[in-house]
């Protein structure tokens, strides 16, 4: 099962990079097959009956939220950069996450980096360390709700945690 998933990922990437000509796709299948044999033991993809639901959640819940937050983050940067005296209130904070898988945590950290005013610096076990440009309330209990809850709920479904 792991081999099939790895093969599909490699083959789809190869397919996107080439034009859809039958010769190229055949070569791509061959190359993907050989690569799969070597790298399958390092990968961690899983396919199960929930995959369509997870894919749909990813496409229709995660991506719109992600791009919305990315645009908001840029407007936030624009607002700060263009104001005469830059409003800053920085700090490093620690937030607990419930996500278990490595890939889920990575995606959460990446999403947080691209949301307004935050930058994930490190992950240690269940804790994310975040640099934020604006510490609104100095209350650890509220950090989670303020910074990570939005993505955590969606990614919990996408990555099956």
């Amino acid at each position: 099962m792991k081999h099939i998933a790895t093969f599909l990922v490699l083959f789809v990437i190869y397919g996107l990079l080439t034009n859809f000509v039958i010769d190229e796709l055949l070569i791509g299948a061959l190359v993907s097959l050989v690569l799969t044999i070597f790298i399958a033991k390092y990968t961690n993809y899983s396919i199960d009956y929930k995959l369509p639901i997870r894919l749909a959640v990813f496409l229709f819940a995660y991506l719109p939220v992600f791009f919305g937050q990315l645009v908001l983050a840029n407007l936030d940067v624009a607002k700060r950069v263009l104001s005469p005296k830059i409003p800053l209130n920085p700090g490093f904070i620690k937030v607990k996450t419930d996500l278990k898988g490595d890939f889920a945590k990575l995606t959460l950290a990446n999403s947080i980096t691209l949301t307004p005013g935050t930058l994930s610096v490190d992950i240690d076990g269940d804790y994310l360390y975040i640099h934020t440009i604006d510490v609104k309330e100095n209350d650890p209990a509220k950090f989670r709700q303020q910074f990570t809850q939005l993505f955590e709920k969606i990614l919990g479904v996408v990555f099956n945690d």
Binding site: R80, L82, P90, L119
Partner: peptide, 23 residues
Amino acid sequence: LLGGLGILRMPDTFDRIQAGTKA
């Protein structure tokens, strides 16, 4: 352009990284 301005105007490294990454 905004990202470049951010890197120029922000006062410390972490804020610069933030502006740079997003933009």
